[in-house]
Design a protein around this nucleic acid. Structure first.
Lengths: 329, 329
DNA sequence: ATGGGCTATGTTTGCGTAAACATCGCCTCG
DNA sequence: CGAGGCGATGTTTACGCAAACATAGCCCAT
């Protein structure tokens, strides 16, 4: 910076003003400085800038895996939204899905060059980790629809989505709907399962035993084989599209035609869902909006004009494709 | 830091030594300091630290989209590997796949708190963008198997992978292999297409006209419908798994049985590939290793003990599943 | 026993920037 | 025509940390 100032024949402070786009600099001076900057290849040093300003203009994102569609697309929404508000995004990996590992990640985040942290994980993993935080760093949690009393929480409206799936199937004339749920410890899976059950009960339908998978297509296939054996099973709601894919294959392998004999609904609307055999009816989640809301909440806290708690639910959308059809009884 | 020093009754420098884990501190002193840190909730300020050290211990990753399996998994590999070497990862989004946008991203990266940059994109997009870089920041490019003379480049061995796919199909007795390629402007797509053609020519087989998709399942479906019309088409090599998925559905819709009548091979080995109908034979890419190599190369440059150019190709693996079978002619 | 070397700790200094305050010249208005 | 004010620019300072250098106490070998 001193070099630029010397070359431009001005003070360092004026260089600072130009580089920060402050208004009270005469145009000719500004241009001289800009030319000097270009000539010397000057870049502001962000460390010094952050040190002085006390802010990094960066958001940390803590997540366990990028292997799931939801996390990645949420992340993408966060990055896009943060970029629009001139903030960078720093990824903070968690080695294992344990509270200890998450606490470690939060500790690292506290020492990192970030002003705020978004955790994409379920509440029970977050636990009390944010308590170990420097007070200045703000936290928002995605993918957990409770704990809104401790941090702002943003999540898909799991209940409404699951209800829409079940009601769609009941509306097609199916007597009841079987459910292939996600892992038992997952809040999202629990929400979808509970809403599935509640919707059946509200409609006065029998509630079949629930099958728990692990979100993978393979688990969907294994459980799908069991459902295929059950002639009374004409409608299946899978807790995500990947398991639905496995179920489709199981039905195919067992000669149960979809949707003629069995209707299948997924959850997520992954990009491939429209190309499954047959194309999958599913519940679309708006991950981009989740990401955008996370950024809004967290920057609201940083600016001091946003709420520090409260849950925001993002609506879902039923996407009807060819894997569901009226029941032929 | 001064508060901690006062409470512990030592100098600020000793606090610094403790917080950096330097060895020449007596255990009792260290413990006193650690206790004072805990009591005051002290966190090192990373801005000041970076300012002093001249390094951020952070790597920037420039990429256009996280919507593709490859980019995400490469990113995941980068994050894991960077974390193992105590580096953070900052995402730098590119708004549009144009050289201008990429140049803008590199400019931002230059002002960001990063010591090095990894670009996950094809070379022709990177263009001369890194020339606008501060000299201190190092660059590595993934997903481009040329330009290794300007920066280190890490990429999947596209040619070997495509050759393995074609040879597998020829080995099953198919007279030739049709190809559904990626977009024409994509280097990766070009490499796979060229290797497909070269392998057919080397075997003295006829080279069918190439069909270009856009990587999406929908484009695979559209092109698959055309292939399904052609009774001479018994083997298809798709440039990625998503298009292969579309092809499988097209064959299914036209009553062309896979693999009995038509064999299909994909590229990537996405997690769903094993659950397609039928499970997809494909070329597995080792994205985690690509990510790890990117980090190694880039940190090697930062440390000054790594090469500044050169291409590293990561081998692929043929994964045989049920979508390919011997030709029945 | 005494010098030399070694370790633990303290002191000084500066990294690059921007806020706060200081200065300087010009314009306006009575 | 001069006081007052305002906008453009310069000067000083501190942000929090760690490198470099300084000091002080100790042990060992001669």
């Amino acid at each position: 910076m001193a070099d630029v100032a010397r070359l431009a024949g001005v003070s360092a402070q004026t260089v600072s003003r130009v580089s920060n786009g402050e208004p009270n600099v005469v145009d000719t001076t500004r241009e001289t400085v800009l030319r000097a900057m270009a000539e010397l290849g000057y870049r502001p040093n962000s460390a010094a800038r952050a040190l002085k300003r006390g802010a990094f203009r960066a958001i940390g994102v803590i997540t366990f895996t990028l292997a799931t569609t939801g996390n990645v697309r949420t992340l993408e929404g966060i990055v896009a939204s943060a970029a629009a508000q001139d903030h960078a995004v720093t990824l903070i990996p968690v080695d294992a899905p344990t509270q200890d590992a998450v606490r470690g990640a939060f500790t690292r985040a506290g020492e990192l060059a970030v002003d705020a942290v978004i955790a994409i994980m379920e509440t029970h993993l977050v636990g009390d980790a944010p308590a170990f935080f420097p007070p200045g760093v703000k936290v928002v949690v995605a993918d957990s629809d409770d704990a809104g009393d401790r941090h702002p929480v943003v999540d898909t409206d799991q209940r409404a989505g699951a209800r829409a799936a079940v009601e769609h199937l009941l509306g097609l004339g199916h007597a009841t709907v079987h459910h292939v749920a996600g892992p038992e410890h997952s809040y999202a899976a629990q929400r979808r399962r509970d809403a599935w059950r509640a919707t059946l009960e509200a409609a006065g339908r029998p509630v079949p035993g629930v099958l728990h998978g692990d979100w993978s297509p393979e688990s969907g296939y294994a459980l799908g084989l069991r459902l295929a054996e059950d002639p009374s099973c004409t409608a299946v709601f899978a807790a995500n599209d990947q398991m639905a894919l496995g179920i489709l294959r199981a039905m195919h392998d067992r000669g149960r035609r979809v949707p003629d004999e069995v209707s299948v609904v997924g959850f997520d609307d992954v990009p491939e869902a429209a190309s499954f055999i047959p194309p999958l009816t599913t519940i679309r989640q708006d991950f981009e909006q989740i990401g955008a809301l996370c950024v809004e909440r967290v920057l609201g806290q940083v600016r001091g004009d946003g709420p520090a708690t409260g849950t925001t639910l993002v609506p879902t959308e039923l996407v009807v494709r060819e894997s569901t059809a009226p029941h032929r009884g």
